[in-house]
């Protein structure tokens, strides 16, 4: 089946089998290997991308389901001028060790802050409950998201 998917603002086309999963379309057809392929059972969230702005697990979505829709991957959140506040937060607060869960965590955290710019710790914990960190570095991940919330707000105030 021929599909057209807007990936990171660019229209991408391919002929794919209906059974191809979105994560493999992103990694193998488009070469965007920032999206990680983890448990393959919709548990770990390493494959999290945004589908029409919502964070979802791309190992459990058919690529054909994304036909005519918008997908954003970790490569697509780059602001053009530097790291995003969430990426910077992970750097500042040591929000990653091995880094495997990081793209998924950042996609989930980015979506959280778009909807809720000032989340409580409990809200952050709930939001990332579908993303597993095999290093169990959750405390620093929560701090990283909180760091992003603080600095994101500060930036908005500056730009306003």
């Amino acid at each position: 089946m021929h599909i057209q998917v807007n990936v990171n603002g660019e229209m991408r086309e391919a002929d794919v089998e209906p059974r191809l999963l979105l994560v493999h379309f992103i990694r193998d057809y488009l070469g965007l290997t920032g999206t990680h392929w983890g448990c393959d059972t919709s548990n770990c969230g390493a494959c999290t991308v945004h589908l029409d702005g919502e964070p979802v697990k791309s190992c459990t979505i058919l690529a054909v389901r994304a036909d005519g829709h918008e997908v954003t991957t970790i490569e697509g959140i780059w602001s053009g001028t530097g790291l995003t506040p969430v990426q910077e937060g992970f750097h500042e607060e040591h929000g990653l060790q091995c880094g495997f869960c990081t793209p998924g965590m950042i996609m989930t955290a980015t979506a959280l802050l778009e909807r809720n710019p000032d989340p409580t710790e409990e809200e952050i914990r709930a939001a990332i409950s579908g993303n597993l960190c095999r290093c169990t570095g959750y405390e620093n991940i929560i701090r990283a998201v909180r760091w992003a919330a603080d600095h994101r707000t500060a930036r908005e105030e500056v730009s306003a």
Partner: peptide, 9 residues
Amino acid sequence: IADPLVRNM
């Protein structure tokens, strides 16, 4: 039920 990412779909 499941987690927020699954609940989005």
